[in-house]
Simulated assay, not measured.
Amino acid sequence: MTHRVVVFVRDGLLAMEFGTVHRLFGQARSEDGTALYDVVTCTSVPGPVRTDTDAEIYVRHGVEALEHADTVIVPASDLDYGERSSANMIMFDRVPADARIASICTGSFVLAALGLLDGRRATTHWKSAEQFRARYPQVKLEPDVLYTHDGNILTSAGEASGIDLCLYMIREDFGSSVANRVARGTVVPPHRSGGQAQYIEMPIPRSTTTSTAAAQAWAVANLDAPLSLEVLAAKLSMSVRTFTRRFTAEVGISPAKWIAQQRIHRARELLENTDHSIDRVAAESGFGTATSMRQQLMAEIGVSPSVYRSTFRGR
């Protein structure tokens, strides 16, 4: 028997995500060429569904298709940012209790609005993370990962991470060899290193109107120098205790954490925009050694300097 995947789409459907699900699961076949999945699209009211492109799709199936699902996937819609736009989807009561339910990108807002993510690990697109956390504080949001799997509920980050999630589900269902064949057929890696943290833009704000602004500016210009609290406090003729208290109050984090963020930000800029050696990047960012920089980047964004550079600058 084939595994039935039901794709639940809504007005404003992100077309890329819709195509991703059909293409990946549609390619999954056994050694003898037998299709392993039956992929069906449904919507609340059958008929035309607007996408985020200049084209519509026509959906023949209504919510009754959910009653026969082994897996339900909810792609994102450009309406997901609206106030509780998906909270009225009571039709999910039709989904079998043992079915797997997954979301792509901001499709996670649907699952959260239905209470399916309460107390569970979940993720969403990094640009929507703050809004998601404010609206659904009961969800254990993990904004740095590509996807999560908690019980029978799976969520993924931005659009392309839907590829990672679909390949993961195929691997879980039918093993690595099937998933790898699908990945090769789609010309994508079967597994990506790191999480979505490496794709998040992280400009580090610096205050220009506070009592510690001059020390911040000096630190940013001298990241390759030892930046002890004593050195920074002396720039302002303050005691270490006074400087630390004022800095934390004005910036929102401790001086040590702020400096670490600045150094990571500088390292990412140099890895993306220069051909400097890894050792030189480490030195100019203030990490001292390539080993230290690698440890810090791995802890912060989940990938090594060389992997980060190959992703954002090319090999």
Rank of each mutant, 00 (worst) to 15 (best):
A234L: 01
H276I: 04
F287P: 08
E269W: 14
R266P: 04
I278V: 13
A282S: 03
A234N: 02
I264Y: 06
E272F: 08
T242H: 10
A233L: 05
R263A: 03
S277R: 15
M238N: 01
D224S: 13
H276C: 10
V281W: 05
A233T: 03
V251Q: 14
I253G: 04
R266W: 04
D279T: 15
Q261T: 11
E272V: 12
V231W: 00
V231L: 13
S228M: 02
T248L: 08
I259M: 08
T244P: 04
D224E: 08
R263M: 07
H276F: 12
G252W: 05
I264M: 09
L223W: 03
L229N: 10
I253H: 10
F247P: 03
F287Q: 06
E230Q: 13
S254A: 15
R263G: 06
A233H: 02
V281T: 07
I264G: 13
V240R: 15
D279W: 10
F247D: 00
S277N: 12
A283F: 05
S285Y: 08
V251M: 12
V251G: 04
T242N: 11
S237P: 00
L232D: 00
G252K: 11
L270M: 14
L223D: 00
E284P: 09
Q261N: 14
L236C: 08
L232S: 04
E269F: 15
K235V: 02
L236I: 07
V240L: 01
V240D: 02
F287A: 09
Q262A: 15
S228F: 01
S239W: 03
S228Q: 03
A282M: 03
F247T: 02
P255A: 13
A249E: 06
V281E: 00
S239L: 07
S285R: 13
Q262I: 11
R280D: 05
N273I: 04
A233M: 09
K235W: 01
I253M: 14
A260T: 14
R241F: 04
S277K: 12
A282T: 01
L223C: 06
T242F: 06
G252N: 05
R246I: 06
A283S: 13
W258N: 07
G252R: 11
L229Q: 07
H276N: 05
E230N: 13
G288I: 09
A283N: 08
T242V: 12
A283K: 14
G286E: 05
D279M: 14
D275Q: 12
F247Q: 03
E230Y: 11
A282E: 01
E269T: 14
W258R: 11
S277Y: 09
L232E: 00
D279R: 15
S254P: 09
W258P: 08
L223V: 08
L223M: 07
P255W: 11
D224Q: 11
E284Q: 14
M238L: 14
D224I: 03
T274N: 07
A234W: 00
A233Q: 02
E284Y: 11
P226C: 03
A283H: 09
L232T: 06
E250D: 06
W258Y: 15
